[in-house]
Amino acid sequence: MSKQLYLSSSPHIHSGDTTSKVMRAVLYSLLPACAVAVYFFGPAALTVLLIATLGCLATEVVCQRLMGQPVTIADGSAAITGVLLALNLPPSSPWWLTLLGAVIAIAIGKQVYGGLGSNPFNPALVARVVLLISFPVQMTTWSSPTPFGSGLDLVTTATPLGEWKNAVMLTGQMPPELQSGMVDYFLGNMAGCIGEVSALALLLGAGYLFYKRILTWHIPATFVGTVVLFSSVFWLASPDKYPNPLFHLLTGGLVLGAFYMATDMVTTPVSTKGMLFFGVGCGVLTVLIRLFGGYPEGVSFAILLMNAATPLIDRYTRPKTFGTSGQGATS
């Protein structure tokens, strides 16, 4: 035999699924949401998407060069962070804000911890929350969706959740018309972050990820389910004041959060049981923040808080080893 023979320890075959293939599939799955964003918010959304994505890629290159590490932007993870960040920003976000977000996401959210796989918090959400706290005005200036062509200037408005919070603070009552636009909310015809408006587009993408077995039901189902159940309690107790579960589901960042942000593999538990705890925790915190917190939206904070709890959850939800009654070693 003329050629080299490989000697190695088994196994000798591999599924062929690699990290970059997984990342690429996630990117594809975000395309419908990006398309809807551009449809409703026009060039403004496209600009935010481009700046955030390119900003994240550039930051990753700069960080890795500075640290003398191999540049790994080809794995696709920085691009995903960029797209997710963009989807979490308002369409009117100025270019410097978007770029700052990209730098924060990659440099502070990811690379300082050691890069891919080592960050405890979802990088895109770290950036969103830092921006939200540092630049509250720019981050909460919302635009009305204007399907292409209908007007060049974006009209400033409030998100449905924001409207509700203002009304309840002022009058203690919920304006009844707020709950009448569910179809628009589902399609994305409402004010909000670029990517969170259309539940339909997000679910399309998530369906693809389920099909590719990249997403499992555990976190999205428990997250959404908990929000529905928990918010129902308040709604049933006081329907004049609290919005119904469908409103919680379709407005704000719940769908984006539950299917894309809370399912980030790196920052969530590894065991099935742990994922269920994680989803429930996210759901409870989201409802509490939405109904009783200072901010109208609580998805980002809820996920980040649960990210912080992930090591603890992992510790207490270790799967029961086959043939043992508990988790401890017997030998």
Binding site: H12, I13, T18, G117, F322
Partner: peptide, 29 residues
């Protein structure tokens, strides 16, 4: 196996995707 069947993919960092956890028949991590 042919030369092309030999997996030579370079190792990357663990992304905690938990596929190994789900795959393990002994329920280990």
């Amino acid at each position: 196996l042919r030369d092309e069947d030999v997996d030579r993919q370079e190792e990357g960092p663990c992304i905690r995707c938990s596929r190994c956890v789900q795959a393990c028949p002994m329920h280990l991590l």
